[in-house]
Design a binder for these strands. Structure first.
Length: 316
DNA sequence: AACTGACTCAACCGCCGGTGA
DNA sequence: GTCACCGGCGGTTGAGTCAGT
């Protein structure tokens, strides 16, 4: 069938989002929650198409997003998962709850792919596998086949993750604080160690978007000056660019959120990006516990609460 | 100091699958 | 059963930034 464009070209604004637009979108989502994106432009008056709104939210405004400074651990995970899953960035991103698929995709395309190609198979694992990812499968597979494939994928991913984490631990043992308290993947990242925004999982964070924060957010943008649009308009960019100073100002579940009482009723409990970890767990520690809990386990049907279940719920 | 090429990443585009009428 | 709508995904682009000359 011929599909009309998601939004007609007239009157639809494109390009970088402005702080004002961000604010409108965030405010709307704070009130109504993400979803029903079709209605967002009309209800908010944003001259954006629904896709653009959704993308802006999921890739940028969504709380709990960590930007830039991929750690070695994250990098290894991405390499392994890419080798196993192929360019299924959304699936890969589900293993890195603080990262967006777009971010991972960009990082892969700009850093990792070249690294693996140019430097030969630097890590040894990616090289051949990455060139022919497992994702190149027939699109039309029956459900049963798909499930078997999924089981295989899970098994392979699991093994690879265990290897990655094991080898990483051998090289650079994780500090206890990193595994237990903060974001395991982020803990030793230069930027993230100082950036509160990366310290908590999205669901646990409790999205603190008060009018005070909004005004501070805008204030921070304004003070950043420079190019209007992408740069200052993007809290994360400011955060990553400045290292840490602005991070606490934009409390997307950051410092303020982590310091906030857990019972803080977050308007973003319906967060679209799943957190595979328990609220007081970091995603990676959840992965680790899942990996190491049953060394010989074929427990792909473990009862509720396992990482696998969560992964099954969200990633596939 | 100016210029140029490489790099980064936010955003767009088109396609696909799920779902409800 | 068919059709249309909507959300999601992966690939791609282009503006902005950075580093080297």
């Amino acid at each position: 069938m011929v599909r009309p464009p998601c939004c007609d070209k007239e009157g639809i604004k494109k390009g970088p989002w402005t702080p004002e637009e961000d604010l409108v979108l965030v405010s709307y989502i704070q009130e109504h929650g993400p979803g029903n994106w079709r209605a967002v432009p009309t209800r908010t008056g944003l001259m954006r198409c629904s896709k653009s709104c959704r993308l802006r939210w999921t890739n940028y405004l969504r709380p709990g997003i960590k930007r830039g400074n991929f750690t070695d651990q994250e990098e290894k995970l991405i390499v392994h998962l890419q080798a196993l899953l192929g360019n299924r960035w959304a699936a890969i991103a589900s293993y890195l709850p603080e990262r967006t698929d777009n971010d991972i995709k960009n990082y892969w395309n700009t850093h990792l792919r070249r690294k693996l190609q140019g430097g030969g198979e630097g890590e040894g694992e990616g090289g051949g596998a990455a060139s022919k990812p497992a994702a190149q499968r027939p699109a039309s597979s029956s459900k049963g086949q798909w499930e078997r494939r999924l089981q295989t994928d899970i098994g392979m991913a699991r093994r690879a993750l265990r290897e990655a984490l094991t080898s990483l631990d051998a090289v650079k043992p994780l500090p206890d604080a990193a595994v237990g308290a903060g974001s395991g993947a982020a803990a030793d990242s230069p930027a993230s160690s100082s950036s509160g925004a990366s310290q908590c999982s999205p669901s646990a964070a409790g999205y603190v978007l008060t009018t005070e924060n909004i005004s501070r957010m805008l204030d921070g943008w304004a003070r950043k000056g420079g190019r209007a649009g992408t740069g200052p308009a993007t809290p994360g960019a400011a955060e990553s660019a400045s290292g840490s100073s602005e991070a606490s100002e934009v409390s997307y579940g950051g410092t303020a959120a982590s310091a906030a009482p857990p019972a803080l009723p977050s308007p973003f409990d319906y967060e679209t990006k799943p957190s595979v970890a328990a609220p007081d767990q970091t995603p990676l520690s959840a992965i680790e516990s899942w990996l190491f809990a049953d060394v010989d386990g074929i427990d792909h049907h473990v009862q509720g609460g396992s990482f696998l279940d969560a992964a099954m719920d969200y990633a596939f």
